[in-house]
Amino acid sequence: GVGLAALQAARIAGASKIVAVDVSPEKEQLAREAGATDYVVASDTTAREIRALTGKQGVDVAVECVGRAVTIRTAWESTRRGGRTTVVGIGGKDQQVTFNALEIFHWGRTLAGCVYGNSDPARDLPVLAEHVRAGRLDLGGLVTDRIALDGIPAAFDNMIAGKGGRALVLF
C-alpha cells in the first residue's frame, strides 16, 4: 500500500520516469496502474537494472518502502550522484546498513528517513483531499481485496507473501 501510494505521489509530482521494484512479478500491473513507467523484479542486480533504465545515471529520488537493510542499500545504489534516498519502511534494530566514507563523499547523495510523510497535517491534508476529489490520487487503487473480519488472517498471509495491495475490512 505504501509503495503504491508513493508511485501515485511520484506521478502527481510530475516524475517522467517512475521505476517500481517488487519481489513479485504479479504486482507489475498494479504498479503500472499506480503510475510506474517501468517495473523491475527485485534481485541482486536491481540497482544495475535501474541505472540502465536511467541512462546509467540512477534515479533523482529513490523511496524505500520495506525497511530492510538490503532494500535500503539497493535504493541508495540506485540513486544518482547528488540525488536523494528516502527511507519510509520501518526496519528493525537488526537491519544494519553500512556505507564507507569514500562512497558518501563520492556520490554526494542524501539519505533521509520519513515519518508519516514528514507532513504538516494542517497544510497537507487539504492538498491530499483535493487530489482525491480531482481523481489524481486513487485510494481505491490501493485496495485489491475487500474482506470480512474472518478474512483478516488470510489477508496477513497474503501481505507476508507479497500478494496484492491492501485489504479493506468490511463489516
Rank of each mutant, 00 (worst) to 15 (best):
G1D: 02
G3V: 15
L4W: 03
A5W: 04
A5Y: 12
A6L: 04
Q8I: 07
A9K: 12
A10C: 09
A10G: 13
I12E: 09
I12Q: 08
G14K: 11
S16D: 06
I18G: 06
V19W: 08
A20S: 05
D22Y: 06
P25R: 13
E26Q: 15
E26P: 03
A31E: 00
E33H: 11
A34Y: 15
A36C: 02
D38W: 14
Y39C: 07
S43V: 10
T46A: 11
T46G: 07
R51H: 09
R51I: 12
K56H: 14
V59C: 13
D60Y: 13
D60M: 12
A62Y: 09
E64M: 15
E64N: 11
E64S: 12
A69E: 04
A69N: 08
A69G: 05
T71H: 05
T71Q: 05
I72L: 10
I72A: 08
T74A: 14
W76V: 10
E77C: 01
S78H: 13
T79R: 10
T79C: 14
R80I: 00
G83C: 10
T85W: 01
T85Q: 01
T86P: 01
T86A: 15
G92C: 04
D94T: 13
Q95F: 12
Q95M: 14
Q96Y: 07
T98W: 07
N100M: 05
A101C: 07
L102C: 04
L102M: 09
E103A: 13
E103N: 08
F105P: 01
F105S: 05
F105K: 01
H106K: 09
H106C: 05
H106E: 10
G108L: 07
G108D: 09
R109H: 00
T110Q: 12
L111D: 03
C114N: 13
V115W: 09
N118Y: 10
N118V: 03
S119W: 02
D124C: 07
D124Y: 08
L125H: 06
P126Q: 10
E130L: 14
H131V: 00
V132A: 02
G135F: 13
R136A: 15
G140Y: 03
G141S: 05
V143E: 03
T144Y: 08
D145P: 00
I147A: 04
L149T: 09
D150V: 14
G151V: 00
P153R: 14
A154W: 06
A154Q: 14
A155K: 02
F156Y: 15
M159I: 02
I160A: 08
A161H: 03
R166T: 15
A167E: 01
L170D: 03
